[in-house]
């Protein structure tokens, strides 16, 4: 564990908690893409199936369990408890355009043609694009609540820090994982436009709104 990965994991955790807390406190999921949240629940479920087959550390197991539980809790709040506040009309990204190609890619390009391995690869690919319905929703409505932008910033920062973690691990441990690195790069690039708006608007106290 290096400093980049340590901060990244807690940034990821912060993002998840910020979103849950925001929905719970405001009793509303307005402006939040339920589709992105379902995709993240699928990402965690398919990636952390190894909870059943191998034990790495108490930290690893606890974080996995927390990520999975929180992602399901978020989906529950959006689609069940606060369903009336869910903005389905604006959450119109066609997720099958992500899930189907990503599934095909995971079957074609993986480290080992085994079920758990393909599901792990699928989760890595899917995570890299899972935020697209949320970004699409913001581009459609033209604005985002400030708390939602903090969520997105923490989520983007997490994968950007993992890139530094992988550079570190390559130099000091000699390991690299091309699938994770390429997908992580794609994922980080998708946030670049948002990072720019976050720094130039939100951090200066302005609301994130896009020109019409």
């Amino acid at each position: 564990m290096n400093i980049f990965r340590g901060i990244a994991d807690f940034s990821h955790l912060a993002a998840i908690i910020i979103l849950l807390h925001k929905i719970w406190k405001s009793r509303s999921c307005a402006g939040i893409s339920g589709k992105s949240q379902i995709l993240f629940a699928i990402v965690f479920t398919t990636r952390y199936l190894d909870l059943l087959t191998s034990f790495i550390s108490l930290y690893n197991t606890s974080m996995k369990v927390i990520y999975i539980s929180c992602s399901y809790a978020t989906v529950y709040l959006i689609y069940m408890k606060f369903r009336a506040t869910y903005d389905g009309n604006h959450d119109s990204f066609r997720v099958e355009f992500l899930v189907v190609p990503v599934g095909g890619l995971a079957v074609l390009i993986n480290h080992d043609f085994a079920l758990l391995e393909i599901l792990w690869t699928f989760s890595i690919y899917l995570e890299s694009v899972a935020i697209l319905p949320q970004l699409f929703m913001i581009s459609k409505t033209g604005e985002a609540e400030t708390i939602t932008t903090h969520y997105l910033f923490c989520l983007g920062l997490y994968r950007a820090l993992y890139l530094f973690n992988w550079i570190w691990r390559f130099y000091f441990e000699g390991f690299f994982d091309m699938i994770a690195i390429v997908a992580g790069l794609v994922q980080t690039v998708l946030y670049c436009d948002f990072f720019y708006l976050y720094v130039t608007k939100v951090l200066k106290g302005k609301k994130l709104s896009l020109p019409a």
């Binding site: 480290h111 441990e173 390991f175």
Partner: peptide, 10 residues
């Protein structure tokens, strides 16, 4: 290519 070693990541 070191794949197993990265399984400890989240």
């Amino acid at each position: 290519c070191g794949r197993q070693s990265l399984k400890d990541e989240l």
